[in-house]
Simulated assay, not measured.
Amino acid sequence: MANLSLDYQIKSPIDKVWNALTHSETLAQWVMENNFRPIVGYKCQFQNEEIGLVVNSEVLVVDKPHKLSYTWVGGPIDTIVTWTLKEEGDTTHLHLEHKGFEEENQAYFGAKYGWTMMIDGLTEILRDA
């Protein structure tokens, strides 16, 4: 198994970062269109119509504002995404663990590239908020 682990430091209060991870409208601005709700057991989808991608998810953990986890099943992957947040001063430390890849293959590197690009979008949204 290969697990993707990424860390970010965002100059924004933890509650703003949490809201960007859990509000469907904000998620749509930096991830994909979705019907996400931060409710354990809730089943939702993330969709990118441009590339024909549909990701099915089920919320596994909601520990506001410190931890959020959900399944990420789409295309060739059946994985779990977990966000962990910790606030220190005016900075939120955001840790992403995306686990369950069979190996460091195209899906793994595609996810790494995709999350890196999406986090750039997240930081822009939070900076402008």
Rank of each mutant, 00 (worst) to 15 (best):
52 G>V: 02
53 L>E: 15
53 L>D: 11
54 V>G: 00
54 V>I: 09
55 V>A: 00
55 V>F: 13
55 V>Q: 00
56 N>Y: 11
56 N>I: 00
60 L>V: 15
61 V>F: 06
61 V>E: 15
62 V>M: 14
63 D>T: 14
63 D>Q: 12
64 K>R: 10
66 H>I: 08
66 H>T: 13
66 H>D: 15
67 K>M: 13
69 S>G: 05
70 Y>L: 02
72 W>G: 04
74 G>D: 14
75 G>I: 10
75 G>A: 07
76 P>F: 14
77 I>V: 12
78 D>W: 04
79 T>G: 10
79 T>W: 05
81 V>N: 04
81 V>E: 04
82 T>P: 05
82 T>I: 07
83 W>C: 05
83 W>L: 14
85 L>G: 03
85 L>D: 01
85 L>F: 03
86 K>G: 15
89 G>Y: 07
89 G>P: 08
89 G>C: 06
90 D>C: 14
91 T>I: 15
92 T>Y: 03
92 T>W: 03
92 T>F: 01
94 L>R: 01
94 L>D: 04
94 L>G: 03
94 L>E: 01
95 H>G: 13
95 H>D: 04
96 L>M: 03
98 H>D: 01
100 G>Y: 00
102 E>W: 12
102 E>Q: 13
102 E>G: 14
105 N>A: 10
105 N>I: 11
105 N>F: 06
106 Q>F: 11
106 Q>R: 13
110 G>V: 12
111 A>F: 12
113 Y>L: 14
114 G>Q: 04
115 W>L: 03
115 W>V: 10
115 W>D: 01
116 T>M: 03
117 M>C: 03
